[in-house]
Design a protein around this nucleic acid. Sequence first.
DNA 1: CGATTAATTGATACTTCTCAAATCCTGTGG
DNA 2: CCACAGGATTTGAGAAGTATCAATTAATCG
Lengths: 238, 238
Amino acid sequence: MGKTDQLEPPHHCQLCNNRPSSAFRDLNAETLDTVSQLKTCAAFKKGQVMLHEGARPQGVYCIHKGKLKFYRLGSEGKEQIVRFATNGDLVGYRSILSDEPIGASVTALEDTFACYIPKSSFFEVIDQNPKFSLNLLQDSCHELGEAGKMITSLAQKTVRQRLAEIFLVLRATFGEDHEGYLDLKLTREEIANMVGTATESAIRLISELRSEGAIHTAGRRIKIEDPSTLRDLAAVVD
Amino acid sequence: MGKTDQLEPPHHCQLCNNRPSSAFRDLNAETLDTVSQLKTCAAFKKGQVMLHEGARPQGVYCIHKGKLKFYRLGSEGKEQIVRFATNGDLVGYRSILSDEPIGASVTALEDTFACYIPKSSFFEVIDQNPKFSLNLLQDSCHELGEAGKMITSLAQKTVRQRLAEIFLVLRATFGEDHEGYLDLKLTREEIANMVGTATESAIRLISELRSEGAIHTAGRRIKIEDPSTLRDLAAVVD
DNA sequence: CGATTAATTGATACTTCTCAAATCCTGTGG
DNA sequence: CCACAGGATTTGAGAAGTATCAATTAATCG
């Protein structure tokens, strides 16, 4: 909470704190100007939907500050959380590039500020900066690796193992606050929807992990007490 | 079987039947020459490993003719089949691009012929043809969508549903032979390793589907008798 | 400070896994 | 081409692991 906090994105991408870690990291000044001029600001309140599964997005969001979940609806209407996005992440480009309807809905987990870049400008950037599409390609390839891990985990591990694993993943992705709690609040249902289990099962197993001292919980706030126990439980391979 | 069958790849990529459907589809003649000159032929017998999980590939394979499985080893040493590759597919580029060790082993499901393109030439192509990396990007984005479907399926569907689904996927991917059997032979264990279940469970459920008339089996050959029943069973959403 | 929504706990039913044992089949060498 | 060895498939029985339904209690949001 100080003047260093950029709650809303700056007018020019050149000044954006997230740029070094975003897909825009290697854009030349000229292209950055183009993007800056054509981008729009967008704010999403907690719980608000940014993109709907099955839709055809007309542009791309660059997350300035916030956290979002990507999820698909299964046949029973149950959410399956597939991944997350946070500061610096580009959202919606896959659908545009593969020319397919969006594969997952995106909803804000907390109040989120983003820049909206229309499809046409996005393609302009691609044409002007080959390095940009290469960066996107790199990111996608990395994501594909992560997806492979998730697939193996879902297919082979027990719910208990996956739960232990997810806490480690969440910590690696979102970090902890000053008290050591995960810097992300999720409902038990959302946790269940990541791990692929019933809410009640997730709750029971979270209680187990708590009583075993691996984690500590305070409502929706979760602290990892014993990472190595979690690692053992999760049978983390890599 | 005739002289139209290109068992081994031609010397020049320009002449390759697979090019229109491969990531090389939009290469200009000049770059194609470069690739042709630098590529090598490689043959893999059924069961032979093309790439090992965790390794650092020094080049990329373009599959000329054959079928391969990608799989990760879970903590119990169990294979999880993540996807397949066949004619025209590029194998190994993800690891090279994301600069990570290979995420999945790749093994030939039948005798396979491929072209090997060294890393350096691969990057040369990327530099010379922006359209190429864009094509790769498109392919990756599509794959990411598929991975998302697989994740949701594993997380939310029963083994029975996933099994029904996988037969439909296999037919869509590999097609059928003249007798209507899937043009791909897998062991029951491999089927189990796709669906994420124990071999015995897969066997039992395959028997069920057979006795319900949805499929027909003859050893490892599988024919889909009633796709719509399978679709119903699988609760296919999209 | 209600009114909902979320979290928890219990009881029970199902699904799936594991271990074991008995064929069956496939690929190979003669 | 045939016989054989060894892996693959099949079936059974029992044990775990999870899901489901129902009923409370707790937490959260206007």
